[in-house]
């Protein structure tokens, strides 16, 4: 249990995908105008990162490593991620068309989210077991969702602030993001 807790703190807070590794910045700035939108996007990304990391683990352990195909890793993982997104989209659409109508817009955006590929490549470096790698992917994406929700909450408040015109909009967003990254630096060293 302590092992899983350390993995959670390390993946979600200390090595946060957005604020420590600077992955997934496009959705971080683009889908964080409202907390609910950010949470929805976070849940969809969590699902895709975790499911594609399961498939990536299998491909790495049973195909790329045994046959010495490591040089095809990035291309293969991109293919696996695209397939995972397409599979999820098709499953949700077939199983519940109404749910697909409501949520379908999140999934196409995730295919090009570099956080998904980034986490998959980090898993290879870690050389973990299946369950550990899946949990690492889940905790990393929970960290992503946490930061998305916090940043969206800050931006909702900032939208009401009477900011100087020079800072209004994206500049204020970037300054806030940098302060948030500084705050997350406080987690450095925990669990080391």
């Amino acid at each position: 249990m302590r092992e899983y807790l350390l993995l959670l703190v390390s993946a979600a807070l200390v090595n946060n995908v957005i604020l420590a590794r600077f992955l997934g910045l496009c959705s971080f700035m683009g889908v964080t105008t409202r907390v609910d939108t950010a949470l929805g996007m976070g849940m969809a990304t969590t699902f895709v990162i975790t499911v594609s990391s399961m498939a990536d683990w299998a491909v790495e352990a049973w195909l790329l490593q045994p046959y010495g195909l490591g040089y095809l890793r990035t291309v293969t993982f991109i293919l696996v991620i695209a397939a995972a997104v397409q599979f999820t989209e098709m499953s949700v659409r077939k199983l519940s068309p109404a749910l697909f109508q409501t949520l379908g817009i999140y999934l196409p955006l995730i295919t090009t989210n570099c956080a998904v590929l980034g986490v998959a490549l980090l898993l290879v470096e870690g050389r973990m077991s299946f369950v550990h790698s899946t949990l690492f992917a889940l905790f990393s994406s929970l960290g992503y969702t946490l930061v998305m929700a916090i940043f969206a909450g800050l931006r909702e408040r900032l939208a009401l602030a009477d900011a100087p015109r020079l800072f209004d909009g994206p500049p204020l967003g970037f300054i806030t993001a940098s302060l948030l990254a500084l705050a997350f630096m406080g987690f450095s060293g925990i669990g080391a």
Binding site: D36, L39, G40, M43, A44, T46, F47, T50, V51, M54, V92, S96, L99, T102, L103, Y106, F130, V131, T134, L135, L138
Partner: peptide, 23 residues
């Protein structure tokens, strides 16, 4: 908003939780 979040939870969180528990 609440319906949207419930829908996201149903579509993503529920299958993922089931998969992880089983694994």
């Amino acid at each position: 908003d609440r319906s949207l979040l419930q829908a996201a939870g149903l579509a993503y969180a529920l299958p993922l939780a089931a998969a992880l528990t089983a694994a």
